[in-house]
Design a binder for these strands. Sequence first.
DNA 1: TCCATTATATACTAGGTAGTATGTTTTTTT
DNA 2: AAAAAAACATACTACCTAGTATATAATGGA
Lengths: 200, 200
Amino acid sequence: MDQKLKSELTRQLILNESFKLFYENGFKTTSVDKIMKATNLTKGAFYHHFENKKALALAVIGLKLQKRVYEAMVAPLYGSGDALEILKTIFSVRLKSFTVYEKQHGCPTNNFINEIGDHEVAYQNALKRIIEEWKSALVYVLDRGKTEGSVRKDICSKSVAVYLISAFEGVRGLRKLYDNDLILDEYVSGLSLYIKQISA
Amino acid sequence: MDQKLKSELTRQLILNESFKLFYENGFKTTSVDKIMKATNLTKGAFYHHFENKKALALAVIGLKLQKRVYEAMVAPLYGSGDALEILKTIFSVRLKSFTVYEKQHGCPTNNFINEIGDHEVAYQNALKRIIEEWKSALVYVLDRGKTEGSVRKDICSKSVAVYLISAFEGVRGLRKLYDNDLILDEYVSGLSLYIKQISA
DNA sequence: TCCATTATATACTAGGTAGTATGTTTTTTT
DNA sequence: AAAAAAACATACTACCTAGTATATAATGGA
């Protein structure tokens, strides 16, 4: 029972270092060699745990990215509290509380989407799952707001969800170009206007 | 006078093929060899016209990308007509009229931003210029709308501009994951809600 | 027409790439 | 404890990479 544990630990180590390097340098330009150098293991270990680099990418997307987005952007939407307040918190407070490192490198999921979202169906589906889960949670909280009377009933929840996600991912990309938070402040101000519009 | 012309033609050929290959396969994974194969020229020609791959990237960004964004997204904003109608056209009609190829591969500029926006200051500045030019045009048309009475005077033009750009670039990335236009339709619907909010 | 310059081609280097083949060590099972 | 299996290491292949060195061809000016 010790071997299984240590093996799983190694797998997680590879996944963690991969995520980090993919995030900092991109997926396609991060080699297996670089990853294994970061883990202090060798290629033998890598190809024992993963069939190839594509399998690693799918694991990083399905495990690391999906989990991160779920914890940061999805789970809070299922919490209690005023629907619109939750939205404001998720999309603005969270954004400003990112570290410089996170602001500089953007959204890990969005980076993957833009880098390999048009390459393989397997990648598309894995990434799509993350977005759809997020979108569903947004629709849920918007619908709840409707029944509770805080959100206008004549708006399309799905459309608002897509627009919110789009703007968030968009600005996380744009922020890479700057060395200050001005664009984030403007985004937040633009967002608050949008939230006012959907409020009843 | 013939040599200068032919030389410039070759340079443009390299730029065009580079743009296309960068767009389809990404910047970092497109090699100089592949580019020159596409031009039916050789490496000698490439390094005669460009100092290195970085110089090529800066030329593609500063010439090809900047021009494309200007023609498609900036120039129309300086045209005549109702400010809000122009915004609707730019951000929704244009989006739906993209070819399948363009929907699949997203926005060339946004692809660059996400791929190398966090790599080098030179890249950042070249890309920033495109976004700032776009943002200025949006601010212009929003301010015009304010004086003409079609746009609410209490909104921050810069913030709205940033939010509009963010959402547009965001959804162009997300669309890569799908094989239909549903997400674009939802974006358009979400956008029209936003435009309603800023109208007087 | 000769010469200089520019434009392009060819051949090469040094290093990086995914993946494989084959080891050796460690752990589990019998 | 022996055998089997799992975990990891080492060495290798075939190919791609940016960039350089040096050649040849085309053009423009005198």
